[in-house]
Design a protein around this nucleic acid. Structure first.
Ligand SMILES: NC(=O)c1ccc[n+]([C@@H]2O[C@H](COP(=O)([O-])OP(=O)(O)OC[C@H]3O[C@@H](n4cnc5c(N)ncnc54)[C@H](O)[C@@H]3O)[C@@H](O)[C@H]2O)c1
Ligand SMILES: NC(=O)c1ccc[n+]([C@@H]2O[C@H](COP(=O)([O-])OP(=O)(O)OC[C@H]3O[C@@H](n4cnc5c(N)ncnc54)[C@H](O)[C@@H]3O)[C@@H](O)[C@H]2O)c1
Lengths: 213, 213
DNA sequence: CCTAGATTGTGAAGGTTTTCACAAGCTCGT
DNA sequence: ACGAGCTTGTGAAAACCTTCACAATCTAGG
């Protein structure tokens, strides 16, 4: 008998990314006062096909109305729930350098349910400053402060050679999700999800596209 | 008779991303003085399998030695060529705000063959400043200056509502590759490749991972 | 020169994701 | 109350990507 989790079955990552996109467009439709949206309209905005949209949604049940489409509010609520956006997530940023402070000062995350509750840096010149309304703490108190702040997600924006050490400490402090900007691959204990944003790699993908046209 | 390009056939994007990774590890092996590397070693560093590594490379020919592995220098050179990194790419950054200036001041890109040659902004207070050794130009002169600078790739770091306009102008100015940080989907003419780095979306993928454990 | 041991290159199998195609179901105008 | 016109939900087919498995080929050591 195959193992069966109480919650949702495994969903492919491309599907999750598309769901995020659908949510954005739905919110735009919602602001525009549209009561229902069809899979074709959602597909058009997101550069995919209506069949793909329906397949993606059918994973979670069937909440469309044949002949009409999907109820905008209802689908927004459903997608928020699926993506875990029906609550606020508490974010910490480790490394208040160029990237870290750009993120800390970005007002857009709060509106999408991600609240920066703490910032950490090793440089005494940065500790004590305030970025985007949040104080910068000394990384020495990372573990205790993260527990105190009840952080869910950490953004790692430290130099590459520090990334592994901090990732390990974050894991021990109970953080289960890390968004990493360093280039090195991280080893984390099971139960911790890491996503890497590797800008040099993105440029290399563009480079490849340019030479293979 | 099927159409046949002189250059390489279509390669899947996951493959291209892995090739970038292999190149990183190979460069580390090269610095460590290793003359040859096996598919197993490359796979281990990158979290994939030896069969995957060999399959990826076999796409471009067979440059390994059975019983030995791959010649480090040779494979580095070959991957650079495949990825188009055997030349320097000329980058412009449009939008010298939080993200744009973080990138402009990042010294790491030049070492990987991406040179920032121009920065543009609409804000008169920013025009004329120097970031990372490069002057900020008024976006009014975008087209002419881009042609003059012979830019290959543009980084788009303007507010979301400006992104489409600038993307269109970039396309007209002869830029064939765009790295976009705004959240909106861009419409670009055929022949222009866009990669989006959507940080809110990355956080949403983490959110989903957190709730579906 | 020959054998033991290692590693590549690649067809074939397996798995996953996307696309196709159409019956079923809903709405709205008459 | 009914038919025309859309749109969903979903099996089946197709496309795509990864893993398997092994013959072919190389090195190194005696
Ligand atoms: N800036 C970019 O455009 C860019 C581009 C690509 C990749 N990255 C990567 O992103 C990461 C951050 O880059 P950045 O440009 O912001 O670097 P940065 O040097 O501007 O900032 C790094 C910050 O981390 C702090 N720090 C160092 N060690 C620490 C520790 N152990 N604990 C806490 N803080 C510590 C430093 O004091 C500094 O403030 C790096 O891994 C870099 O390779 C940055
Ligand atoms: N900062 C972040 O952490 C972050 C996070 C997620 C997404 N983003 C996205 O990245 C983009 C840039 O964000 P940011 O935080 O750097 O914004 P920002 O407001 O700090 O900077 C935007 C810059 O673009 C300039 N600008 C405006 N219109 C322009 C035009 N037509 N041509 C040229 N320049 C123009 C502004 O003068 C400003 O300097 C936005 O689309 C934002 O949504 C940023």
């Amino acid at each position: 008998m195959p193992a069966s989790r109480a919650s949702v079955r495994k969903i492919a990552e491309p599907t999750v990314r598309r769901l995020s996109h659908y949510l954005r467009y739905l919110e735009a439709f919602e602001r525009a006062g549209r009561g229902t949206v069809s899979s074709g309209e959602l597909a058009h905005s997101g550069g995919t096909t209506s069949a793909q949209v329906r397949k993606d949604l059918s994973f979670f049940g069937s909440f469309g109305k044949r002949g009409l489409g999907y109820d905008t509010h209802e689908l927004v609520a459903k997608l928020r729930q699926i993506l875990g956006l029906d609550r606020a997530w508490r974010l910490v940023i480790v490394g208040a350098g160029k990237i870290g402070s750009a993120l800390a000062r970005h007002p857009g995350f709060r509106g999408r349910g991600f609240e920066v509750v703490g910032i950490f840096d090793a440089d005494p010149n940065r500790v004590g400053h305030v970025l985007g309304g949040v104080a910068v703490w000394d990384v020495k108190v990372l573990e205790s402060e993260i527990r105190h702040l009840r952080a869910d997600i950490a953004v790692l924006a430290v130099p590459p050679e520090e990334a592994q050490t901090i990732a390990t400490r974050l894991g021990r402090a109970g953080v289960h999700a890390i968004l990493d900007f360093s280039t090195a691959p991280l080893e984390v204990p099971a139960g911790v999800t890491v996503r890497s944003v590797d800008l040099a790699l993105e440029l290399e993908v563009l480079s490849h596209a340019l030479v293979s046209r």
